[in-house]
Amino acid sequence: MQITVNGTATEVQSQTLADALNELGYGNARVATAVNESFVPATARDAPLSPGDRIEIVAPRQGG
């Protein structure tokens, strides 16, 4: 299905966020996620994705 990952249209085979993270190369990276502007905790990433979902994947960065 086609979803949007960090603003970029992306085709994935995975049906869940957890599988998509693996498919997209995140593996066990220290990231946090949101789907359609709502936070999805790591413990809830087995929920199914839908075509068109907008996914945000973030990691620690510098900040002021």
Partner: peptide, 22 residues
């Protein structure tokens, strides 16, 4: 220390490097 979260690309591990530093 103040820090932030920002988008990370698949296969990139910039976040991990920064996390270790802070």
């Amino acid at each position: 220390a103040t820090i932030s979260v920002r988008r990370e690309a698949g296969g990139d591990r910039a976040g991990a490097g920064f996390w270790n530093l802070v």
